[in-house]
């Protein structure tokens, strides 16, 4: 199978590999997997006070396409708001990297990871709001 330049570039020089402090209030962590192939992917986002994503990291144990898809996803989420990050679709990743049909599930994994990370962050925010409210006796 012949891979395109972009996918090879992201695979050979993956951007934003690593981890953020998952216990930080400003970090959202998404861990997703594809049972068909056993690939696991962790994507983390860091937001500022205005809910803008200022940093992202990933760790992917899987094939080259899964690594390239997550690398691209971390590049794309940076500078977006949480809701804007959710607008990234797996089909955008497929197009950008020219993924072959058998590797489309890798892009789905990356999209799922963005969603999971955003959901984790929103859950943290909601939990904090809940504690603040009950602490103030509003509840």
């Amino acid at each position: 199978m012949a891979y395109g330049d972009k996918i090879l570039d992201h695979y050979q020089n993956p951007r934003n590999v690593g981890a953020l402090d998952r216990n930080s209030e400003n970090v959202g962590t998404g861990i997703v997997g594809a049972p068909e192939c056993g690939d696991v992917l962790k994507l983390q986002i860091l937001v500022d006070e205005n809910e803008n994503i200022v940093d992202a990291r990933f760790k992917t144990f899987g094939c080259g396409s899964a690594i390239a898809s997550s690398s691209l996803a971390t590049e794309w989420v940076k500078g977006r708001t949480l809701d804007e990050a959710l607008e990234i679709k797996n089909t955008d990743i497929v197009r950008e990297l020219a993924l072959p049909p058998v590797k489309i599930h890798c892009s789905v994994l990356a999209e799922d990871a963005i969603r999971a990370a955003v959901a984790d962050l929103k859950a943290k925010r909601a939990a904090r709001a809940g504690t603040a409210e009950s602490g103030a006796g509003v509840k």
Binding site: I31, V32, G33
Partner: peptide, 13 residues
């Protein structure tokens, strides 16, 4: 249904 048992993905990672 791609669901997994609680904690398996994190442990595998």
């Amino acid at each position: 249904d791609k669901g997994t048992l609680e904690g398996v993905l994190a442990t595998a990672l």
